[in-house]
Design a protein around this nucleic acid. Sequence first.
DNA 1: CAATGTGAACGTGTTCACAGCA
DNA 2: TGCTGTGAACACGTTCACATTG
Lengths: 208, 208
Amino acid sequence: MQSSEVPEVVVLRLPLYIRALLQLQREGVEVVSSQQIGERLHMTPAQIRKDLSYFGKFGKQGRGYCLRVLLDELRDILGLTTDWPACLVGVGRLGRAIINYTGFAPEGFTIVAAFDSSDDQVGTSVGEFTVRPMRELADAVNNMGVSIGIVAVPSEQAQTVIDQLVDNGIKGILNYAPIAPYVPEGIVVRNIDPVLSLQSMTFYLKDR
Amino acid sequence: MQSSEVPEVVVLRLPLYIRALLQLQREGVEVVSSQQIGERLHMTPAQIRKDLSYFGKFGKQGRGYCLRVLLDELRDILGLTTDWPACLVGVGRLGRAIINYTGFAPEGFTIVAAFDSSDDQVGTSVGEFTVRPMRELADAVNNMGVSIGIVAVPSEQAQTVIDQLVDNGIKGILNYAPIAPYVPEGIVVRNIDPVLSLQSMTFYLKDR
DNA sequence: CAATGTGAACGTGTTCACAGCA
DNA sequence: TGCTGTGAACACGTTCACATTG
């Protein structure tokens, strides 16, 4: 049950299972099979069972999984039983959109501070935040419990900003800049890059 | 050289190679090795060479790749030599942010029409667009050459909207709704789901 | 009897290592 | 000599199939 031996793809899928379970829960389901989860997510029951087996035995043979129990287990495995305060870096158009995005908070991801490396932005108000200078990053990490940084700066500045985040103790980075960031071992990065998605999509759309 | 035998992961990486090449080009590089590309992207030279080998032989042994040539080849492979008009569905907060996003157009992805399934939104102005009703989708596909749909509607409506897009001849979908969409064979979907990214990130951040 | 949990088989993707060529 | 292109070896992820059990 050691984290290091769980394939990363499996970890990437666990949140999907949570989603499917929440959906089923809203529909009043209390006991659920890997088959049912698979139908929601368009994946095979075997894969779901295999994925879950990396973490333990949560089901009852011949019956299925108690939805409530499985949901709690998954949340526990992923560390989603506590909130995760995050800080935003970059309050341009994209950064402002991220601040106004209502999808994070209900899942326990709350932006608690906004930073910017440009002096023009520092001190201005964005939503409920007063934009702070990068040198105050340590305060967010040490006094606000922030371990996640959301990067929404232009690509030229992104690597520098990421370095600063890491230097100040940030452990996870959600990067919206269109670059392939370098981070040291042990730092987790997730890239949000819609252009990349479109550019690979066209391969399958061209000539027809 | 048949597309169907190119692993999808390879296709997903090609846009990264384009990025790296553009960066190197700006720095005045004219001949480039797989090593150099790998350094930019933090990947091994072998992987880059192997990926390229699915499509042909673009380099010169002992020397490397002519940057300009490789760039053109990659753009051609991905179908990025033409523009790709796209339509947006959903002009709520997220949809408006997407319309205002300046990252798509320079890469040849231009939003040319905005739709919404809610009667309240239809007819209103968003940016340069007048929001159109879903029933006019076919017009965008047939008369504006749209084959990509960008979905930015609430999750409850997302599957319905995706079905409508597919029914009207859309071939590729960039989905921002937090669902696992079902699409028939031959339709390409890319999901943009930052919450999912965060929820898998925390697995590696918890307990420390 | 129905659905889990899981080794074993399979398939896919990555890395290695080197032959071949400019 | 240096770097590509690529079979072969390897590692990783998925699927199968079935023994197990409530």
